[in-house]
Structures are given as C-alpha cells and as structure tokens.
C-alpha cells in the first residue's frame, strides 16, 4: 500500500474514534484541527533537560530496550527552538532555575512539559537551601511523573498521557506552584511561616547591628574582619 497525502484525509490513517472524525462508508470527514492534533501527538519532538539521575533513566527510555520511537517521540532535540515537549529530568537547583525558564520561553507554541521524578515535581528529598521545590514554581507542568527515578515504563506512560492531552486539546498554561515562590498567595504548608520567622530574626539582629545568621560580617568593626578584596596579594 503506498501512502499518499490524501489518504490522511480519506481517513486511512485517522483514528475514527477521534473527536471530530466521522466515519461513514468510504468517506470520512474530519476537521482540520483534528488532523493537526493527530499529527502533533504522533510526532512529538522532546527536548530532554536532563540534569541528574533521572537523565540516566531518560536515556534508558530512549535507548534500544524501551524504545520511545514506538510512540513517535524519538526525535530528541537539544535545541528548545525545535522541540514541543520539554522533559525536565532531574533536580533543578536555584542556580539552574533561570536557565530552565529561558529554555521554556524559547520553545515555540504549543508546548507541553513533563516533570520527571520527585525532584522536578516537588524538590523530592532535597528540602534545602539551594533546591527549587518543584519546577512548577516557574514553568507550567502538564504531567508529573513520581519516582526517584521513575522507571522507563512510567515515562512511556507520561508520553501517552501527553498524547491524550494533545488529543483533548488541554494544556497547562500557568505555573501551578508560582504562589510558593513569593510571599504573596495563600500559605502553603509551613514554608511561609518559616520564612516569616527568619525575616523576623533578621530584623531583630539588624536592630542590634548584627548581620543575618550564617552571614560573615565583612567590614563590621565588631568582628574585626576585612573584606577579601582588600586582602589580595
């Protein structure tokens, strides 16, 4: 059977269970957007933003054994300009956060995001001073894949979930966890309370002329330490 472009519109490759596709005899009518969605879902171009352990399992998913090509998502692009699916695989520390945001912004619309692993979902067991507590603080996330790291099967399931969302035409557009970043918004867990306590502590120390805890007080006459700049050989 030779494949011709018109066959697509005749329905030979269109799933008749699709919304907007009507099968009747030899003729199948469809809407253009249904065909476009079908095309998008079947040829996802993922960009792996692999940073840590999850990237290794991502490699396992894209390698020969699990073979993501079966789902039409094997064309890995390392440039965000050529990708429509962002796989954030691994911990995102605060230093990397602006990089992730830039990459997300550089991807052309429409775009989808998978947060792979608990670090990308919530920060995982790295609840500490330099780790973003979930990438949804800065980018919208369509599918969260828990696991540390998730098994490749779970990732394949995530790809299928994304395909479902494309088919249904739904897409997350706002970062769900943005309110966690700043002081505004409702209190989430006890993070705000902690921040408030630290801020109060800083203020109390500032009134006594002390630097915040953990801060070296360069130039403070009480400590007798000079700034490193004036101390070079």
């Amino acid at each position: 059977m030779t494949m011709r472009l018109l066959d697509v519109f005749r329905g030979k490759f269109v799933d008749p269970t699709y919304p907007g596709v009507h099968a009747g005899g030899d003729v199948i009518t469809t809407r253009l957007d249904a065909v476009v969605k079908w095309g998008r879902k079947s040829s996802l171009w993922p960009m792996p933003f692999g940073t840590a352990c999850c990237a290794i399992e991502f490699m396992a998913m894209s390698a020969s054994h699990y073979d993501v090509a079966r789902f039409g998502a094997e064309v890995l692009r390392f440039s965000p300009r050529q990708a429509d699916l962002l796989f954030v695989a691994g911990t995102i520390p605060d230093k990397l956060a602006p990089v992730l945001k830039t990459i997300y912004d550089q991807m052309p619309e429409p775009k989808w995001v998978v947060a792979m692993g608990v670090c990308a979902c919530t920060g995982g067991f790295y609840r500490s001073y330099h780790v973003m507590q979930g990438i949804d603080e800065i980018v919208p996330v369509d599918v969260y894949v828990p696991g540390c790291p998730p098994a490749p099967e779970a990732l394949l399931a995530a790809v299928m979930k994304i395909q479902e969302r494309i088919k249904e035409g739904v897409r997350q557009s706002e970062p769900q966890g943005a309110h966690r970043l700043g002081a505004s918004g409702d209190a989430v867990f006890d993070r705000r309370a902690r921040r408030a306590a630290w801020a109060a502590d800083d203020d109390a120390r500032a009134k006594q002329g002390l630097a915040p805890r953990g801060v070296i007080a360069f130039g403070n006459p009480a400590s007798g330490v000079q700034a490193p700049d004036g101390d070079r050989d």
Binding site: R127, Y129, H130, G182, R194
Partner: peptide
C-alpha cells in the same frame, strides 16, 4: 544557617 532557607535566584 537554617537548612531549608532559600534565596530567590
């Protein structure tokens, strides 16, 4: 220094 104290990047 408190372990979980982050600074906005």
């Amino acid at each position: 220094y408190p372990t979980a104290r982050r600074h906005a990047p």
